[in-house]
Simulated assay, not measured.
Amino acid sequence: MYFPEFSVRAPLRAFLLLTLVTGCAHAHTFSLSWDNDLLLGLDQGYTNGVRLSYLSSPSSDQNAGSARLSRAAGQWLKGLPGIDPESQNQAVSFSLRQLMVTPEDISREQPSRDDLPYAGFLFLSSTAWSWDADSITGYGMHLGLVGPESGAEASQKWVHTLTGSEEPRGWDDQLGTDVVGGLQGTHARKLWRSGRKGQLEQELAWVGSARVSSFRSNARVGWIWRTGRYLPINFVPDYAGTSSTVGLPAALNDAGRGWSVFIGLGLEYVPYSYLEENADPYQFEESPVLAQVGIGVTWQWQNLQTALILRATTGEEQSNKESFSFGTLSLTWAY
């Protein structure tokens, strides 16, 4: 498989450098997530996404070198709502993400103008998190590439070869090169909890987020219910199935050996979408208000957690109202 030198290797080197400069002590957390509609037997719309994420040690860890970065972030952002270095933990995450969208019929060399275009995206992002047992807040930024330099074509063809799926033939007609970026914020709060550690526990929480970006500007609100044994401190699993790093902070703290099942419901308002604004000559019009549902299961053992999430969204494409549905597999580990 060939990846263009700039499109994948350069951001990957930058990601590795970011993880190294945070220190080489213990208590690091890594996460690898894979979105794919093939997990639901589909191959249309949002077809594939991969995210590799790293989280620095929490600011309360006095023995970890990367905790210095966490404490510095807490002091720098302490004037913002939801950031309290005196009573909360802080940490910083770095992520490298690649995703792609394709039309429903990938067998055509010249894609239908009445469908989605081929498009690939590659992003680097960083988020500073602050949390306690009842709330979590994050502020971050992202910068990325759209177009052939994203490496999306090579990635999809490799996955389809690996899975024995049909080869996509229309990537020569994908959206052209562009640079995108923006800022984002997230806040979540626990509303209700019952049960004790080692017994059956239940929790209900809400989460809200906003993003101002030249890629996709949006505002979201959602509610998450989960139940299980030895629930980790982090009460916001990746219910939306978009490889979010919101699941990283405290994902494994005091988790022990346990499991969880969760359901999430959400609404999203999208005032701007790069895909819609730059889809010409494709007839793609995105709905500004979307409803989302996600269900998932997790299993954790000591410093390892795995998850499977299934997600559906009401019609992204206003013209035909078809939903975007896909599954996410993720692995999170700490050392």
Rank of each mutant, 00 (worst) to 15 (best):
S244F: 05
D173P: 00
G151S: 08
A27N: 15
N89W: 00
S125L: 11
S273E: 08
Y54D: 05
L38C: 09
V180P: 11
S217M: 08
G23D: 04
L42K: 10
Y139M: 09
N253F: 08
S7N: 12
D115F: 07
D84F: 03
G266I: 01
L310H: 05
E276W: 08
M1T: 10
V246Y: 06
I83M: 06
R13W: 12
L52M: 13
F121H: 07
A72F: 12
D115E: 10
W76M: 14
I233Q: 15
R169G: 06
G82Y: 01
E109D: 13
P4W: 07
G258K: 05
E316H: 14
G296N: 05
R68N: 14
T332D: 01
A210Q: 08
A205K: 11
Y335A: 09
G182I: 09
F215Y: 15
K321A: 07
L267E: 12
R226T: 02
L267C: 10
S70H: 02
L183E: 02
S209N: 10
L18C: 11
S325Y: 03
D115R: 05
Y139H: 08
R257L: 07
G181T: 04
V261C: 10
Q305K: 13
R51Q: 14
D37K: 04
F6K: 14
F3G: 06
I136Y: 00
S244R: 13
S125H: 09
G222P: 06
S59N: 00
H28K: 15
W333P: 00
V221K: 03
S57I: 01
E5A: 13
D134Q: 14
S165E: 13
A307K: 06
V236S: 11
S59Q: 00
F326C: 01
H26C: 07
N89R: 12
R311P: 06
L331H: 05
F3L: 15
F215G: 13
G185P: 08
G140R: 00
A312R: 12
S244V: 06
L99P: 04
S323D: 13
V159I: 12
I106Q: 00
L191F: 03
S125M: 11
N89V: 02
G164Q: 03
D172C: 05
F235V: 01
A188F: 04
Y118G: 02
S66G: 07
G222K: 02
L304K: 07
N278K: 11
D178G: 04
G247M: 08
S31K: 12
W225D: 09
T29D: 04
S31Q: 14
T19Q: 15
E285S: 15
A25H: 10
V261A: 15
S60Q: 06
D43M: 05
T245K: 01
Q44P: 02
I83W: 04
N320M: 10
Y282G: 01
R108H: 10
Q88R: 11
E153I: 03
M1D: 11
T22N: 14
L38H: 09
R211Y: 08
F30A: 06
F15C: 02
R193E: 14
F123A: 02
P111V: 09
D43I: 01
A240E: 15
L252E: 01
L12P: 02
T137I: 05
F262I: 12
L122E: 12
T245E: 15
P148F: 03
P232T: 01
P81R: 01
Q110M: 14
D238F: 01
N89S: 11
G65W: 09
